[in-house]
Every structure is written in C-alpha cells, then in structure tokens.
C-alpha cells in the first residue's frame, strides 16, 4: 500500500509486528501452560514457560472438585435456551423490518444505539425487582429472559440484514408461479436465511455464555451459577496450587466462542447468495 519501503523500514515493521505478537500471544501461551502443569511445577520458585511434565489432571480436578462441570451444564442450558428463543422471537420481526418500511423499525434500531449508553446499574435494579415480583429471581428462566432481551436488538439488526440480502425478485418469482405467501416463506426465504439464522443463534449463544454481570446479580444459589460466575468465585479461593484447575476451567470456558469465531469467519465470507439474481 505504501509502495516498496526501504530495508530499514521493513526491519522496523517486523520489529513492531514481533512486539505485537509477544503482547498478544504470550498471555495465551501462559494460560495454556498453566492449565497443563502438575501442582509441583506450579508452586516451583521459578516457573517455566513450557511444562516439563504436562498433565490433564487439572481438567479432571476442575470438573470434580470445583463443580465447574455443573456450572458448565448450567451455562449450556441457559445459552441454548437463549439462542433458540432469540431466533424464534426475532425471525418475524426481522422479516417485517427488512421488507416493510415502518417508523417502528427506525425506533427499534435507534434503541440499539441508545441502550449502549446506559450503564447496567440503571437496568439491573428494576429488572431484579420485576423478576422478584413474578417469582423469576434466582432462576435460570429469569436469566434466559434477560439474555433474550439483551441479545434481541443486535439479533434483529443482524437478521434483517440477512433478509434484505435475499433478493425480492426470488419471492416475487415464486408467487407468480402460484406459491402462497406461506409457501414462499417456507420454500424460498427460510432455506436462504439458514446461514443468517445460524449466525444469529450463535451470536446469542455466545453473548449468554460469556455474560457475567446479570448472572452474578440475578442468580444467588451456588448450584445454579453459570460458568463465568463459578470461575470468578474460584478465583477467590486461589492458592498457587489451585491455579492449574482455574486455568483449565478458563480454557474450557473459551472453547465455544473460539469455535463461534472460526465458524463465522467462513460463513460470513461464503456469500452463498451471489449469483441468485443476474444483472
């Protein structure tokens, strides 16, 4: 882009890039290394970057002793329910937003941006009071409800973008061929919308899986805690030997989002609609 830089310029660029790689990469390597270190190596006076006797014991321990297995199951339940519910609720609205011009749509999208401004503290107290009133405080159902509402604005915005990418001509052609409105939706729109539905579901799954603040405040029973909350409690009882299972649990908590990002990169760039309309 800047033409051919001089030799010193190139060298400086590589020095800078190396700096970035170290800054971004080493903490990750350290997490990996800690997760596979046996307790004896963890308490050593001078720890090493690569464990000399790698072990999976930490992973076993994280699940059996610290109830992280239970927390992971809780997280899975809550995140799956949020993802399914978000898509179901957002699907009709996003179709309406993409295909019809309504003031309501503008208002809803404006709310996405506006709601970013407000700190959670303003929301959490009234939400807590509402949930307590209807008996959903300290339940997974209450948490799911909040996650759906929280993911909805962005999910709507994302899904309606996918709907808009489906050429109107395809729908019109199908109805000219005699398909009913419902058949058009089922045979034309939904199949083409599949990547968008997957992306939206994944997005709401991940935002629920990673969420911490609401889960911390709204769920008090330890047996119901989600994975981030359980991990944060685990931090509180650290001793040097405990760092291994803590790192192991953290690694496992990251896996879903890593998979999400890997999938999304391919899905979003695949452009499955290219060529559907000529001209």
């Amino acid at each position: 882009m800047f033409g051919k830089p001089s030799r010193t310029g190139r060298t400086l660029q590589y020095v800078a890039l190396t700096g970035y790689l170290i800054f971004l990469g080493f903490p990750l390597v350290w997490l990996l290394s800690t997760a596979f270190k046996p307790p004896r190596e963890l308490v050593k006076l001078h720890p090493t970057l690569i464990p000399s006797n790698p072990t999976v014991q930490n992973f076993v321990q994280a699940f059996t002793e610290q109830q992280l297995g239970r927390a992971a199951l809780n997280s899975l339940q809550v995140s799956l329910a949020s993802a399914v519910l978000t898509v179901l609720v957002a699907l009709p609205a996003s179709y309406a937003l993409a295909r019809f011009r309504t003031k309501l749509g503008t208002v809803a999208l404006g709310w996405v941006l506006l709601s970013q401004l407000f700190p959670f503290v303003l929301l959490i107290i009234p939400i807590f009071l509402i949930l307590r009133q209807v008996g959903l405080a300290n339940t997974h159902a209450g948490l799911v409800l909040i996650y759906v509402v929280w993911a909805l604005p962005f999910a709507l915005w994302m899904l309606q973008g996918f709907v808009r990418n489906i050429p109107r001509e395809l729908e019109e052609a199908a109805s000219v061929d005699g398909a009913s409105r419902l058949q058009v939706l089922r045979r034309v729109v939904f199949p083409l919308l599949a990547p968008g539905i997957v992306a939206t579901a994944l997005f709401s799954f991940i935002s629920a899986w990673n969420e911490f603040f609401f889960a911390l405040v709204l769920v008090k029973t330890p047996e119901l805690a989600t994975l981030p909350v359980a991990l944060a409690r685990f931090v509180g009882i650290e001793g040097t030997a405990r760092l291994g299972p803590l790192a192991a649990g953290s690694l496992l908590a990251t896996l879903p989002s890593l998979i999400f990002f890997a999938v999304m990169q391919r899905r979003l760039s695949s452009g499955s609609l290219a060529g559907a309309v000529k001209g």
């Binding site: 997490l31 899986w209 990673n210 911490f212 981030p228 909350v229 991990l231 944060a232 931090v235 803590l246 790192a247 953290s250 908590a253 990251t254 989002s257 890593l258 999400f260 990002f261």
Partner: peptide
C-alpha cells in the same frame, strides 16, 4: 473471543 472473566483470570 474470550469471556471477560477469563481474560481477567
């Protein structure tokens, strides 16, 4: 891609 809690840990 990391949950904030994991970044903290």
């Amino acid at each position: 891609a990391m949950p904030p809690v994991v970044v903290g840990i």
